[in-house]
Simulated scan of single mutants.
Amino acid sequence: MTSPTPIVLFVCIHNAGRSQMAAGYMTALSDGAVRVLSGGSEPGNQINPIAIQAMQEEGIDITGNVPQLLSTEQVQASDAVITMGCGDVCPIFPGKRYEDWELTDPAGKNLDEVRPIRDDIKRRVQALLAEILPATV
């Protein structure tokens, strides 16, 4: 990572489920050692209430989050950009670390269906965190 405090950007289409859960985990698990951004190519009106409920089970509160429009500036400022199903609509900049996490969209799913998605996101965030902050994890 190039910045003193690594910046990680999580992106999904509506910025209402997957990217918000990932951002919640990264914020909580990094204990402030990583600056976390999230955005969407077509942001929704609110965070998915089932995603909020699933994260509350983990002791992470994302109720105050609001879906945000992905900006070129966010991508430029980030050391790592993690996309989750946004396809070709996410801007790409040479020299950036990109990963595309293939995750089921939690939209329209019940809590039992969202838990495995949440748990997969947690595992991926933990692995990413171990790579970008190896001395502290």
Rank of each mutant, 00 (worst) to 15 (best):
T2D: 15
P4S: 13
I7G: 02
L9C: 15
L9W: 03
V11R: 11
I13N: 11
H14P: 01
A16S: 12
G17S: 11
R18F: 06
R18D: 06
Q20T: 08
Q20W: 04
M21I: 04
M21A: 05
G24M: 12
Y25N: 05
A28S: 14
A28R: 08
G32E: 11
A33Q: 15
V34Q: 10
G39D: 06
G40D: 11
E42D: 01
P43Y: 05
P43W: 00
G44W: 00
N45K: 04
P49H: 12
I50M: 03
A51L: 00
I52D: 12
Q53P: 04
A54L: 00
G59T: 12
G59H: 09
I60E: 06
I60T: 08
I62D: 09
T63L: 04
L69W: 03
Q74D: 11
V75W: 00
V75C: 04
Q76R: 15
A77P: 04
V81M: 11
I82Q: 12
M84F: 10
M84H: 06
C86K: 09
G87E: 07
V89W: 09
V89E: 14
I92Y: 14
G95R: 02
K96P: 07
R97L: 12
W101M: 09
E102S: 10
D105K: 06
P106H: 07
A107N: 02
G108N: 03
G108T: 01
K109F: 03
N110K: 10
N110G: 14
L111I: 15
V114A: 02
P116I: 07
R118V: 09
R123L: 11
R124M: 08
V125R: 09
Q126D: 14
Q126H: 01
A127D: 07
L128V: 07
L128R: 02
L133A: 10
V137I: 05
